[in-house]
Design a binder for these strands. Structure first.
Lengths: 329, 329
DNA sequence: TCCTTATGTGTACACGTTTACACAACATGA
DNA sequence: TCATGTTGTGTAAACGTGTACACATAAGGA
């Protein structure tokens, strides 16, 4: 019984006006008689007419679609930002198209597909896609990158995140508590975000004449944190594990306690990164280098709004991380 | 420097053919000379031409967009399904538009906005939108509903989930272990999904001459599980809390252990629902009524594929839940 | 009275594709 | 030889909007 959607020309016929007038009834600041408009809106409600956004986009050269490039949806470490962003977009009548690039075989093709939909903005959270590819695939839409290092490309806007001060704070407290055999558990081997996060801590250690005694690499997942922590403790006698994100930190803590039978933080301290909600749960109470997710998304939205308003001047906003002190370090 | 995107007519000019031939070069089974096609594809690569999907959608009456209506992105209880679905869609060259309806002030308007984009399919995970509204807003696109109760509308396809057998199993074991003062912690007061989940357990209890001694209502969140569990134990002396989802179960368990100082499951058993990955983490090891997420999404994708192929006959697929036995019950 | 200006509406085209139709060139079979 | 079919390509219309332009009407000022 699914009746076809009514078109502006058909509605015009029914109301007794031209299709142009229908269009005017739906744009707030168009020259149209007050009486005509209300007659049209009433008829639209009656017949279930809604302007076709696809046709409008083709005409306008504005789709009001936003490509959001992420690694995964499920992983809590990105989920909070995604949720905030989607809400902010929806409040502005923009629709998000999510691209999961994390384990997708051909990220570039996926991004090209999204590009054919003439998205108005591109937000890149994923560290799996290079800046170079992004501007290549979206030549007309300047992407907004979530960056952890200075960009050499002046055509893109970016949010830069600086955790060096917080890392320094954390290392300071750990060293004061007698820790000396620091190790780093990466989330991935290929990401420059991960490399820079490590560098914040490595620099803080260096300032005190210390260095990581060992490194391991996981997959940003609980299981990988659990598994990789074991040799760090066993073979390298670490007494402080810095993890690439909070989920791995929880995994590492579980391994230290359950598999190795050691206490946290007395025997081995565990530090996370991200500051996700779960870190504050009573059963976790994680010490973590945390980012203010709200400020972060506000910055992204700010850039999008400027871009939407036609301001093509790219800009970079820098945010500073803070520390959440928990029971694990 | 963002050069404008090249159009099919312009490319035609460059290659020396008509724009129709350009189009043919991009559709696999069109009548076109092999030599011409490769010449066009080479030129397309050279000038960065990609067909405009918006224009194609307008012409085709097929957008290859899929509206995915969810409560929230962040909440782990839905995230796994979302991730699987998005991947399946991307593999089929379909793009998901996520609609977060959970705490959105005007869900209906949000859905109407998506409807104007002429989405090909609609998948409704959220229990916050009624079937009636959905078919109303997407009259031309038959929605696929994740349903927990028999549908009275023959125009929609649905996945139905049946957890009664698993609930029976769980109640059986708890009763055998001497539990008798069961309580239910809902995730929301307004959802019929939640009501049906509760009914699975209520029926299982009834079969043994038992009934819930008290009810509480949270918000599907850790914090609400933590908070609502306290009075259930204190005032109602419950010895078995059935929770609306896993996250609340983790919160409830924490409250029982840390705030009330009781042991789980000896003093109070805690049961979750969903079977999310986190439930299996060493620190949680939750007993939970769990759904096979892969089978679930496979069913959704199956319905989408049929619909995409032009099969308009609605169908209902039923899935049965199983039990994950952990250390909390 | 006429000129000017504001207001409301219709006409026609553009946005970038896809595709039905027509047609030319060429091959095939009798 | 001609009728028939196949192949490759161009022409033109359609998809459903938004909007520049033209125009008719009404209002206001001299």
């Amino acid at each position: 019984m699914s009746r076809k959607r009514i078109t502006s020309k058909e509605l015009a016929e029914l109301v007794g006006v031209s299709s142009a007038t229908i269009s005017r009834a739906f744009s707030p600041d168009a020259r149209i008689g007050e009486e005509t408009r209300s007659r049209i809106l009433a008829a639209a409600r009656k017949y279930g007419y809604q302007p076709n956004a696809i046709a409008r986009s083709l005409n306008n050269q504005r789709s009001r679609l936003v490509a959001v490039v992420v690694n995964a949806i499920g992983n809590p470490c990105e989920a909070e930002e995604q949720q905030l962003l989607v809400h902010a977009l929806q409040a502005r009548q923009l629709l998000p198209i999510i691209l999961c690039c994390g384990d997708h075989s051909d990220r570039l093709q996926l991004m090209r597909l999204a590009a054919t939909y003439q998205v108005d903005h591109v937000v890149i959270f994923s560290d799996m896609v290079s800046l170079r590819d992004a501007v290549d695939i979206f030549p007309t839409t300047k992407p907004i990158i979530v960056s952890f290092e200075p960009l050499d490309n002046e055509d893109v806007s970016a949010i830069r995140i600086d955790g060096s001060a917080a890392a320094d704070e954390i290392v300071d407290r750990l060293a004061t508590n007698g820790k000396s055999r620091f190790t780093y558990l990466s989330g991935t081997s290929s990401s420059w975000i991960d490399k820079l996060r490590r560098k914040w801590f490595a620099d803080a250690l260096a300032r005190r004449g210390l260095a990581f005694v060992a490194d391991a690499t996981g997959t940003y997942s609980y299981d990988s944190g659990f598994k990789e922590a074991v040799p760090l403790v066993h073979r390298f006698k670490t007494d402080a594990i810095i993890c690439g994100n909070d989920v791995m930190a929880i995994g590492a803590r579980d391994a230290v306690k359950r598999v190795l039978g050691k206490s946290v933080p007395e025997d081995v301290a565990v530090v996370g990164q991200d500051g996700i909600a779960m870190a504050a749960w009573d059963c976790n109470d994680l010490t973590t280098l945390s980012l203010d997710h709200v400020a972060f998304i506000n910055a992204v939205v700010e850039l999008i709004e400027r871009h939407q308003a036609g301001d093509d001047k790219p800009d970079t906003i820098t945010l500073t991380c803070s520390t959440r002190w928990g029971a694990t370090a």
